[in-house]
């Protein structure tokens, strides 16, 4: 394809067309900017499902705005005939293949993420070993805030190779686990009842969900896992702390011994 043929693809852009382009881009940018600023603020004033649904609107609005803007912009530059579109897409494919492959891979993964929803704003996810709350889904990256308040920008393309572990999957139910390591001689039924009482009396408990205690025998003793759900996923760390502290205190009051594991010394 020679230079003449490529230049024939494009229309002549006069001042009127340039004004249209600027207007479309400005309006699209304004809508995206406002949705990204206002909706998270509104969402943080809401609770439970309302919060999650409001947050989920943000990437959806941006995707719709970008598609509409592109549909309006392309005919300004290119006469949308079959021949022109094939030629333009071919040139675009070549550029993507050589120069901006990874970037475009993330963009496409971003679109797939909005459609398949492996994560939504407000979800608690683990991607590539990083656990945190999804606070923003951008065009190229998803922003996670870890429990230590560190913001991690994770490229969407991670979803091609890595499993996404989603703890609440768009809803307010997020299971929390508090672990207790006890000697094997402990009375299992007494421990189980005491731990259930601890969960049932926690102010953070979502009473619509079950409280479960599971027991595993290990070479060093017995592992008890107290599983329950908080009312709000954002309370998960406070909830686990509450279960752990009160659980330990109750077990100590019941004179139940905790397992002490001595690590082998390596000379």
């Amino acid at each position: 394809m020679d230079t003449q043929k490529i230049s024939d693809l494009f229309k002549t852009v006069d001042s009127n067309a340039a004004l249209q382009v600027v207007t479309i881009i400005l309006i699209a940018w304004l809508i995206v900017f406002l949705s990204q600023r206002l909706l998270p603020r509104l969402a943080n004033l809401l609770h439970s499902k309302q919060r999650l649904y409001t947050l989920a609107l943000i990437p959806l609005i941006r995707l719709v705005v970008v598609i509409v803007a592109l549909v309006m912009l392309v005919p300004i530059f290119i006469e949308p005939t079959l021949k022109n579109m094939v030629a333009a897409l071919g040139a675009l494919g070549l550029a993507i293949g050589f120069a901006i492959k990874d970037y475009v891979s993330s963009l496409i993964a971003g679109v797939v993420a909005i459609h398949e929803m492996p994560y939504r704003p407000g979800d608690w996810v683990t991607i590539d070993g990083v656990y945190g709350e999804v606070t923003h889904i951008g065009l190229r990256t998803v922003e996670l805030v870890t429990p230590d308040d560190t913001v991690v920008a994770m490229p969407h393309e991670k979803i091609w190779q890595h499993a996404v572990l989603n703890a609440n999957n768009g809803g307010p139910s997020l299971m929390c686990v508090a672990e207790f390591f006890l000697t094997p001689e402990s009375d299992g039924l007494v421990v189980k009842e005491a731990l259930e009482q601890i969960a049932l009396t926690s102010p953070y408990l979502q009473i619509h969900k079950p409280v479960v205690v599971t027991v595993n025998d290990e070479p060093w003793g017995t592992r008890y896992r107290l599983k329950a759900y908080p009312v709000d996923p954002r309370q998960q760390f406070k909830f686990i702390t509450d279960l752990s502290l009160r659980g330990k205190q109750r077990l100590l009051d019941l004179k139940i011994e905790f397992a002490k594991v001595e690590t082998a010394k390596v000379n």
Binding site: A194, Q197, L200, T201, R246, R250
Partner: peptide, 8 residues
């Protein structure tokens, strides 16, 4: 009383 001892 919603407390581990108060629920018994």
């Amino acid at each position: 009383v919603r407390h581990p001892l108060g629920i018994r």
